[in-house]
Simulated scan of single mutants.
Amino acid sequence: MNRLLKWLRHDHLPPHLQAVVQPIDQLAQQLDADLAGGPEKTAGMRKLIEAKDCFVRARIEQDEEV
């Protein structure tokens, strides 16, 4: 298992954040299973982590505006 997948898990988050992270988690797991290891795969996983963090912050900001 790719060591970076732990940063994309969603099951520990509150439900409203799980809904944001779950599709990214599933995509990352599928790509990890389908692609051979290497620097480009690692870079892609890191970018998914960055994107996940941005989307979570966007959801939190959205919730604060209400």
Rank of each mutant, 00 (worst) to 15 (best):
L8M: 01
K41S: 11
G44F: 15
V21I: 08
H12K: 05
F55H: 08
E65T: 12
F55G: 01
Q22V: 09
K6V: 09
T42H: 02
K6F: 03
Q26L: 10
D53E: 10
R57S: 02
L27M: 06
K47Y: 14
L17R: 10
V56P: 02
L27A: 11
A33S: 13
P39F: 04
Q18P: 00
D25P: 00
R59G: 02
E61C: 11
I24P: 11
T42D: 15
D53Q: 02
D32Y: 04
V21K: 12
M1Y: 01
D11E: 13
P14C: 04
P39N: 04
E40F: 07
A33P: 01
M45K: 01
K41V: 04
L4E: 14
R46A: 04
G38K: 06
D32S: 15
E40W: 05
V20T: 15
L13S: 01
Q62M: 08
H10W: 12
D34L: 15
A58W: 10
K41I: 03
H16E: 15
Q62Y: 12
I49Q: 08
L8W: 01
A36H: 14
H10Q: 08
M1D: 03
L31H: 13
G37D: 15
Q18H: 03
Q30P: 03
A58Y: 12
D25W: 00
R46W: 04
A36N: 11
A58F: 14
E64T: 08
L31C: 14
R57Q: 09
L8P: 03
D34W: 10
R57G: 00
H10V: 02
L35T: 05
M1S: 06
D63W: 06
A19Q: 14
L27N: 06
L13F: 01
H12F: 03
I60M: 07
R57Y: 02
N2S: 14
V20I: 15
V20E: 08
L27K: 07
D34E: 15
P14I: 14
H10M: 00
V56N: 03
R59W: 08
H10E: 10
K6A: 12
I24T: 12
M45A: 13
H16Y: 12
H12Y: 05
N2W: 05
